[in-house]
């Protein structure tokens, strides 16, 4: 099996039906993408496929093979994506576990809807759970990053 992850072609020896989540974590050692529910209910495993947010627990390796996969490790080369900066300016994380998924969801949202309204942000981010309750700061961080996010993801180019 082949996957293009964060701009690099990777070869895998695995069942094509393995969810992308476990292939990334267990086989490619990319552990920034988190397991939360395995059912596409919590968003902790959110990655980009061709720039669009997808739940990696709901995508097989075979399905992902044709796409450019971007994980939190590839969101920016040096952690300076405008949303990553905004997350730090607003001190968003508490335990931090869901934040890679939140960042991947937020970056796809702002790429698709750069001027998303407050309600659109709330709707767009409601697939991503945070048990610590960092939602007000996630919302504030997204608002402050509006206008700074590049229109196309690097991996979606």
């Amino acid at each position: 099996m082949k996957l293009t992850v964060n701009g690099t072609l990777r070869e895998l020896d695995c069942d094509p039906e393995m969810p992308l989540l476990w292939a990334l974590r267990d086989l490619l050692q990319l552990r920034g993408t988190k397991y939360g529910c395995g059912k596409g209910l919590c968003g902790a495993c959110t990655v980009h496929l061709d720039g669009k947010a997808r739940r990696s627990c709901q995508v097989t390796v075979a399905e992902a093979g044709a796409a450019a996969v971007t994980t939190i490790e590839g969101l920016s080369a040096d952690g300076t994506h405008p949303l990553q900066q905004a997350w730090r300016e607003h001190n968003v994380p508490q335990c931090g576990y869901c934040q890679p998924g939140q960042l991947m969801a937020a970056s796809a949202l702002l790429t698709a809807s750069p001027t998303a309204s407050d309600d659109e942000i709330r709707s767009g981010m409601s697939g991503n759970l945070c048990r610590c309750g960092t939602y007000p700061r996630i919302h504030a961080a997204i608002k402050s990053a509006q206008g700074k996010v590049p229109l196309a993801d690097q991996a979606g180019d």
């Binding site: 990319l30 552990r31 397991y35 952690g79």
Partner: peptide, 19 residues
Amino acid sequence: GLPIVDLQDMTVGKATYGI
């Protein structure tokens, strides 16, 4: 309100949890 020491790691996917 010092920022938490794990802030950078948590925003780039490098923080290490049990899993």
